[in-house]
């Protein structure tokens, strides 16, 4: 099997797609390294999150970040990894708070990674003494037991804002409802369609679609986050064109 056959195969096309996507990410990162964050549309949720961090620090309350129960593998795991980026940024900002943020997860791997992220963050900013392994905790091993385990974190630990960034199911409504009962801000984003549908009704600031995947760019997690966002926008349009063209060709009977 020669290289051409490989490339024209479905797997080869996928590989080409990946290579081009990666190249565009790097190009955009290099071109926009002096203008980070440019051309990003405003997302109210992240602005409110920034303010909520400040308010939590001032009020002596803590923030709660929930990473869901999706693990680190598959598409479900990606949202959990994005949540870890948000954890790292919030931990930096809230490092001066009397109450450090709490990270809850519904899967063991995410629990370990959340502890590691917090430890690394505090070590980087020179506040290693602030780290406590109990700040990264596994609340439950099933979706609803996980939701049930998160509720005490919200009710009992003076949480002023809850960030839900990961893979959830419809049980996320219980977490959002508990946050609303404590008059806290609820910012929720997930890769799951069911969770997004519930978040629209239950959360104050829902992140619909791939807005969760833009969290890294909006919280300044790194330069490649913004460039990958631009690449996503471009390839989204490419897919739109491909779908429309394919539908048209299918309609006329060519394919």
């Amino acid at each position: 099997m020669n290289i051409v056959d490989i490339l024209i195969s479905p797997e080869g096309l996928g590989l080409v797609f990946l290579v081009v996507f990666l190249g565009s990410m790097i190009v955009f990162a290099v071109a926009g390294k002096n203008r980070p964050g440019q051309n990003l549309r405003g997302i109210v949720a992240f602005s409110r999150l920034g303010k909520a961090v400040g308010l939590a620090v001032e009020a002596g309350k803590r923030l709660h970040i929930s990473l869901g129960w999706g693990g680190v593998s598959g598409m479900q795991g990606i949202s959990g990894l994005l949540g870890l980026s948000v954890v790292e940024r919030i931990a930096r900002l809230a490092s001066i708070s009397d109450r450090p943020p709490v990270v809850s997860s519904g899967e063991g791997t995410l629990g370990i990674l959340s502890q590691d992220t917090l430890s690394k963050t505090y070590r980087t900013i020179g506040e290693a003494r602030q780290y406590d392994s109990g700040q990264g905790r596994v609340s439950g091993l099933t979706p609803f037991s996980y939701a049930a385990g998160v509720l005490p974190n919200i009710y009992d630990e003076q949480v002023s804002a809850t960030v839900l960034a990961g893979h959830f199911g419809s049980e996320v409504a219980l977490i959002a409802d508990a946050s609303e009962r404590t008059d806290g801000l609820t910012l929720a984003g997930s890769d799951s369609i069911q969770a997004q549908a519930v978040m629209v009704a239950a959360a104050q600031e829902p992140l619909i679609g791939e807005e969760l995947y833009a969290a890294g760019a909006y919280v300044n997690a790194g330069p490649l986050h913004a460039s990958s966002l631009r690449a996503q926008d471009i390839f989204r349009w490419v897919l739109v064109v491909i779908i429309l063209v394919g539908a048209a060709l299918k309609l006329v009977g060519l394919i």
Binding site: L18, F21, M25, M75, I78, L81, L82, D191, G209, E210, L212, Y213, A214, S228, L229, A231, Q232, F235, R236, L239
Partner: peptide
């Protein structure tokens, strides 16, 4: 969109 974000991440 989620798939594109997953690829980027």
């Amino acid at each position: 969109g989620v798939a594109l974000g997953t690829i980027a991440t």
